[in-house]
């Protein structure tokens, strides 16, 4: 590298100070080269770099605010959904209650109708039984009078008065019916 060392080469002294003859060359090239560096940086490289940084910062800011907005929208959608579900539930409950009431009413009506029919049949049956019973009772008193008259005639040889027979039979029947 030692092509042609400047003036006081390695002859003692203090190189940083005693090479004054090289100052114009050092300063000239420093100014020229730093000028090139400054020009390249200020006109091309730094604007590109700062633009990339700004673009990214903008993109991040936009993304964050977009995410916040989307999250807000999602929250609103969730709330709306919840409201809808609650509404649907209420409507469902209402429908169910109405249906129950209707069916209850129908069941009650059917039941009362069936009850009434049964009641009617029961009463008519009871009446028939009572009729049959009175009819049977009259037949019984007739047979008893005849039997009584026949028994009295056999025993006494004379036919009793029909009125007296009827009277006593009635008395006995009444007594026995009270015994029962």
């Amino acid at each position: 590298m030692e092509h042609e060392t400047a003036s006081h080469a390695s002859g003692g002294g203090f190189p940083p100070f005693d090479q004054i003859d090289t100052f114009p060359a050092q300063i000239f090239w420093l100014v020229v080269l730093l000028g090139i560096l400054y020009f390249a940086l200020s006109s091309v490289l730094l604007p590109k770099l700062s633009k990339a940084i700004d673009d990214r910062d903008d993109a991040i800011a936009a993304n964050v605010s977009e995410a916040a907005a989307a999250s807000g929208r999602a929250d609103a959608a969730v709330k709306e959904l919840e409201a809808r579900v609650a509404e649907a539930k209420a409507r469902g409950r209402e429908t169910a209650a109405r249906a129950k009431a209707e069916s209850d009413a129908r069941v009650a009506a059917e039941t009362s109708r069936a009850d009434a029919a049964l009641e009617a049949r029961l009463t008519s049956a009871e009446r028939r039984i009572a009729d049959l019973r009175t009819a049977a009772m009259t037949n019984v008193s007739g047979i008893a009078e005849e039997a009584t008259a026949a028994m009295v005639e056999r025993l006494s040889g004379t036919a009793p008065a029909p009125a007296a027979v009827r009277q006593s039979v009635a008395r006995v029947l009444a007594a026995s019916s009270t015994e029962n």
């Binding site: 800011a61 964050v64 916040a68 999250s71």
Partner: peptide, 16 residues
């Protein structure tokens, strides 16, 4: 429901 997401968004915003 979206607490976690909200927190993350808040953190990102704070960093910004």
């Amino acid at each position: 429901m979206s607490e976690d997401l909200n927190q993350r968004i808040a953190e990102a915003q704070a960093k910004l």
